[in-house]
């Protein structure tokens, strides 16, 4: 797969070329490409003069970075204590069923990535999900169906039909 060169060049130009820029660069690459392509990590290592092993170590340490392409829409289901008590497992199961993916998985069409997170800091709204950085509180399976439909009407419809 060939990757577009332009965004990488812009990202590299944005930050000073030393070790302290590493995480900021990786964040920008993650946002632009929705994952950290190996060839780009190698390029970053060369530009910042940081060993490849170190870049790889950092890239695999933080949950915010992914080595596999993530979906266009990231769905984070909070599974923290408060959300768990208020039924986040039901929400998670419903997402798994409608999207047909496991935790951490991406749908085949590359539209959604389903992620379990530990706390998003809004326990008063439990159970919470975060879709495209927008928080949805007091989630129910019913509300979730509507939300999915609004995000991707076709997908939600077909899976719904299959399930019935």
């Amino acid at each position: 797969m060939t990757l577009p060169q332009a965004p990488l060049q812009n990202i590299l130009d944005k930050h000073p070329h030393d070790e302290s820029s590493l995480i900021m660069l990786l964040q920008d690459v993650q946002e632009a490409y929705r994952y950290l392509p190996p060839e780009i990590l190698v390029e970053i290592a060369k530009t910042l003069n940081v060993p490849k092993a170190k870049v790889f170590g950092v890239a695999t340490f933080y949950k915010a970075f992914s080595m596999e392409p993530r979906g266009e829409t990231e769905i984070k289901v909070c599974c923290g204590t408060a959300c768990h008590v208020r039924g986040s497992t039901l929400i998670m199961d419903e997402f798994k069923r409608t999207l047909g993916v496991e935790e951490g998985g991406t749908t085949e069409d590359g539209k959604f990535t389903l992620e379990a997170v530990n706390c998003v800091g809004t326990c008063a709204m439990a159970p919470v999900i975060v879709v495209k950085d927008v928080y949805h509180g007091h989630m129910t399976v019913n509300k979730l169906g509507k939300l999915l439909k609004s995000l991707n009407p076709k997908k939600a419809k077909t899976t719904g039909a299959k399930a019935s």
Partner: peptide
């Protein structure tokens, strides 16, 4: 790192953390 090769690092985190070479592919070998 001290020797100056920096060929290995800890990969991943938590219970999945291991010591390894990046990508385990030869062209990335230091």
């Amino acid at each position: 790192e001290k020797i100056g090769a920096s060929a290995i690092s800890t990969i991943g985190r938590g219970i999945d953390k291991i010591v390894s070479v990046p990508y385990e592919t030869e062209e990335n070998y230091a």
